[in-house]
């Protein structure tokens, strides 16, 4: 059972056809990858507003859903924009290091930011879809467009695990915070290390349990979904 499905079942547009929602999501993804930045920014604002409106979720809860992906997003942007260069004028805030200059690359910064906006747009659109469409309907939609069952299973596992991940992350964080694990910077660093380790352990355990549960119900690798009545 997923928390995300709580929103997916009780939102204002649960009755919309999942195919329509799927189409809108696709449109969002296309807009995320087109080149004009202002369109993406407008899209982010509109989609975030609409998500909050239809799910009646508070902004804070909504932000929670980003905790899990934020580190990955930031790491990839940092990886792109920071570079070494032989000349100081190619770099913002250059630091002299081993005869080269280290810092934010003037060429790569706009590229990195563009990537950031692009990914955020795509993620915001995906969350809109995931938070308004119950799991069962998503599978039906994928079946309707004749996705191969391997792909469907892949999607379903990703879908399930992103949210298991977010939830486990929150739980561990809360437990650590309760016991003052984030009081100082040093403690915080230590706590984050423990959190990541526990997170992976927890996700492995959850995965194993899910496999047992699927086995008990004779799951053979293909989701068979009945007609909705």
């Amino acid at each position: 059972m997923l928390v995300i499905d709580k929103y997916a079942y009780s939102n204002r547009i649960v009755k919309w056809s999942p195919k329509l929602k799927g189409l809108l999501w696709l449109l969002g993804i296309i807009l995320a990858f087109q080149p004009i930045i202002p369109i993406k920014l407008v899209l982010i604002v509109v989609v975030v507003w609409h998500t909050l409106y239809v799910t009646k979720m508070s902004g804070r809860v909504y932000l929670h859903w980003f905790y899990a992906i934020l580190p990955f997003l930031l790491l990839s942007i940092i990886g792109i924009v920071f570079t070494m260069a032989p000349k100081a004028n190619q770099i913002y805030y250059p630091i002299h290091l081993f005869g080269n200059y280290f810092g934010i690359s003037k060429v790569m910064l706009p590229k990195g930011l563009r990537l950031g906006v692009q990914v955020s747009t795509a993620v915001v659109c995906t969350y809109w879809f995931a938070l308004t469409t119950p799991f069962q309907q998503i599978i039906l939609t994928l079946k309707a467009i004749h996705m191969p069952s391997l792909m469907i299973e892949e999607v379903m596992l990703m879908y399930r695990f992103i949210f298991i991940f977010v939830e486990a992350c929150e739980q561990i964080y809360r437990a650590q915070k309760l016991r003052l694990g984030y009081r100082t910077f040093r403690l915080s660093m230590h706590s984050v290390g423990v959190l990541v380790k526990m997170l992976f352990e927890q996700v492995m355990i959850d995965y194993q349990q899910m496999v047992y549960a699927l086995d008990a119900k004779l799951y053979d690798g293909e989701f068979k979904v009945g007609e909705d009545d």
Binding site: D5, P134, F135, M210, A216, K217
Partner: peptide
């Protein structure tokens, strides 16, 4: 088999 933890066993939302 019915597991100790029902949340583990229940897969769909309805």
């Amino acid at each position: 088999i019915v597991f100790q933890n029902s949340d583990q066993q229940i897969f769909y939302s309805i």
